[in-house]
Amino acid sequence: MPDKMHVKLTVNGQDAEFLAEPRELLIYALRERLNLTGPHVGCETSHCGACTVIVNGKSVKSCTMFVGQANGTEVTTIEGLGSPDALHVLQETFREHHGLQCGFCTPGMITRAHKLLEENPNPTEEEVRFGMAGNLCRCTGYQNIVKSILAAAAQMNASKEAAE
């Protein structure tokens, strides 16, 4: 069995430390060691995006990153985006616009959409569709997901303007 390595990362603002085989995938470290079961496994081949998290400010499919590679990084998962008392705008607009059904893709979708809106706060429908193309959904047909994301952008921009 390969030697274990000492892994240290920050997940949702909290330090995490454990011994793991370097080949362990980040998604399993998050789900099984840290009990962050929001991100899901849909393929393990980087096609579906259900496992999407944010690593050092970038969207990452966590089934495609070894925990060894994630050593020393800062990771955000769906659990770190909002809290029951203070939902993320996307968490609200997805519900408002029926952007989910079985919910299996949803944590990855919202985590990716959050990053997309950070990178492009004013996306067109086309840009949303392109920017979300790494996340598969089998239930919704995307129409309401796109709607939810555009609504979130509008809402975020409106509150930004109000604050200025």
């Binding site: 789900r31 029926h98 919910g103 919202i110």
Partner: peptide
């Protein structure tokens, strides 16, 4: 009616079989 399921799903608090430990 807005869906009651969504509150937990959007927060990553669904409970799917692979989440069971």
């Amino acid at each position: 009616r807005k869906r009651v399921e969504d509150v937990r799903f959007t927060q990553g608090k669904g409970n799917y079989v692979d989440d069971i430990k």
